[in-house]
């Protein structure tokens, strides 16, 4: 381990209000399940020195249905998502994705709020949240705001979240139609996605989002539009090339990602027909 632990300061919170007051008083980095933060700490790449631990803010763990909206608390872990009857009933593809995150040890600690805030283009829950037009709920001492998921990320690992805000929940409006999720990596467990895709198909209405193929998660707007206009699968797959901007990196190549993305979209369209 390459970080001098004794130089790090942490304050604990057990309520959202406490955590928000701490974040209001001074710049601090929230710690949820620490499965991203402590990897950086072990590598010595963590630049932050002051933290607020929110792991014990139990009110953020709730998964509930409010009216017709599914509300997932930011601290819900992958294990919580896998076990939740509400997720199974309304957003089964999120449970499916959660089973493929890391191994059980990571699923027991990693949270959906951490996945969103960490803003990795490879975050596996993100294409799902994008495809279902989720809303991110941000709160600070001065109040709460709701940001459409499509407006949440502003660039590679950047989002509209202010430093004094916590993600408190993510809201999912009803998702009519078929849900479809695929993750392509080197193996099922402990693998970061080379390409990850989520789709929703309700009759002629199609929604599609991909991860690991651009600086942020992307909605395949051009492919969606081609299909909405009644064009062929081949034309939709052509349009997809302009929706994504994959790169060569340690996990894969741009060419491979283009090819796999196209194949996944074809498969989505045939399997949900």
């Amino acid at each position: 381990m390459r970080t001098a632990i004794s130089t790090l300061a942490v304050r604990g919170a057990t309520t959202v209000r406490q955590a928000l007051e701490i974040l209001h008083d001074e710049e601090r980095t929230p710690i949820a399940g620490a499965t991203d933060l402590f990897v950086a700490l072990n590598f010595g790449t963590l630049t932050m020195r002051r933290f607020v631990d929110i792991w014990n803010v139990d009110e953020l763990r709730r998964i509930a249905v409010d009216g017709d909206t599914l509300v997932i608390g930011a601290l819900a872990t992958y294990t919580d998502l896998i076990r939740s009857p509400m997720i199974a009933a309304r957003l089964p593809m999120l449970a499916e994705a959660s089973r493929l995150v890391g191994g059980p040890q990571i699923q027991n600690r990693g949270t959906i709020g951490g996945n969103i805030a960490n803003a990795s283009p490879a975050g596996d829950s993100l294409p799902i949240l994008s495809a279902v037009d989720a809303v991110v709920v941000l709160r600070s001492v001065t109040g709460e705001r709701r940001v459409a998921f499509r407006d949440f990320y502003t660039g590679y690992r950047e989002s509209v979240r202010r430093r004094d805000e916590l993600i408190v929940a993510v809201e999912i409006p009803p998702v009519p139609g078929r849900q479809w999720f695929r993750k392509v990596g080197t193996r099922a467990a402990q693998a970061i996605s080379k390409v990850v895709i989520a789709g929703v198909r309700d009759g002629q209405s199609l929604r599609l989002a991909l991860g690991s193929v651009a600086p942020t998660v992307v909605r395949a707007r051009r492919a969606e539009a081609a299909l909405a206009e009644g064009r062929s699968i081949d034309e939709a797959v052509d349009a997809l090339r302009a929706d994504i901007t994959p790169i060569d990196d340690v996990r894969s190549t741009a060419d491979y990602r283009h090819l796999v993305s196209a194949n996944l979209v074809r498969r989505f369209l045939t399997e949900t027909r």
Partner: peptide, 25 residues
Amino acid sequence: EGECGACTVLVDGAPVCSCLVPLVQ
């Protein structure tokens, strides 16, 4: 870095990677 599981312990009965858990938690 959470990949190998050699550091697995149970916290409140659930397996976790102790290399990724801050003492405060």
